[in-house]
């Protein structure tokens, strides 16, 4: 909806601390945000670049969420999981066609789907800093630090996501529990088993937690034990006790789904 108090939207300015980056979705038009008088429109500056050298894949921050599965086509299981992730979002397909990879990562919503996916795949996040400063990189596990908080400084933006083949070849599963067909999940459990190291499965818990929680485990029980101390949210999608209580159920189901995918 119309945003009051905005002085300008600039499309030719680099990110800076007193400006708000405008990506694609756009969440900024739908939720009250900290008042910054300037928005910097990231559309049209070529940040939807995709680099594939046959091994590593680098995805520009402005690629649309709906395009992600196609960009992952050479890893069919990863592509399938990405598609399942998008189907599980509360956002409409209209939003998914406009919303971006970088925007979803940067918003760091508890029920966002890109942070858990990138954590699952051990992605590296390339961070754009102010003009003339070389980018820095951080692990996807380190990006989201809490409910709508990230490790990014005020003048930093996600520029690219780097995916490595060893992390992407494998198979995965996801289990969500939702109030209704289009509500954000109350709890999501993601599992991913790589071909390179199949004995241990990476598990990510999201939606009911402030940020994605991850553990490597050999079984659902081991994962449950490893995740026993994680924080859970209480909100209109469910109380923390409930989320804690059903985590072992979703872990077991995710494991069964993974077994089924393997066979």
């Amino acid at each position: 909806m119309d945003v009051a108090g905005l002085a300008q939207i600039k499309s030719d300015s680099p990110p800076h601390a007193t400006a708000q980056a405008l990506a694609g979705g756009t969440w900024l038009m739908s939720e009250p945000t900290a008042a910054k008088p300037t928005w910097i429109d990231l559309a049209g500056r070529g940040w939807d670049d995709v680099t594939d050298d046959g091994k590593h894949l680098a995805l520009g921050a402005m690629i649309s969420l709906s395009a992600l599965p196609d960009h992952l086509a050479r890893w069919p299981e990863a592509s399938r999981l990405a598609r399942a992730a998008l189907a599980a979002t509360a956002a409409s397909s209209k939003v998914l066609c406009q919303a971006t990879l970088g925007g979803n990562l940067g918003l760091a919503l508890p029920f966002g789907v890109m942070n858990p996916l990138m954590t699952l795949w051990e992605a590296r996040i390339e961070v754009q800093r102010g003009t003339g400063i070389s980018p820095r990189h951080l692990a996807a596990t380190a990006l989201q630090t809490g409910d709508q908080t990230t490790a990014l400084a005020a003048d930093e933006l996600v520029r690219r996501v780097h995916l490595a083949p060893d992390s992407m070849r494998g198979r995965g599963a996801v289990q969500h529990l939702r109030l209704n067909a289009a509500s954000p999940p109350t709890l999501s459990v993601w599992v991913w088993q790589t071909d390179a190291a199949p004995e241990r499965v990476r598990v990510v818990v999201s939606a009911g937690t402030p940020s994605p929680q991850t553990v490597l485990a050999r079984s659902a029980d081991e994962a449950a034990a490893g995740l026993s101390g994680i924080p859970f949210l209480t909100d209109n999608l469910g109380p923390a006790e409930y989320r804690r209580g059903i985590l072992p159920v979703l872990l077991r189901r995710a494991w069964a789904q993974l077994e089924s995918a393997r066979t």
Partner: peptide, 25 residues
């Protein structure tokens, strides 16, 4: 006004968008 109901849907260059979430410019 928040992109949740779809009543404002229009096509922008052929793609369906929530007009309430789309900056006019």
């Amino acid at each position: 006004g928040t992109g949740d109901c779809g009543a404002c849907t229009v096509l922008l260059e052929g793609a369906a968008v929530h007009a309430c979430l789309t900056p006019a410019q």
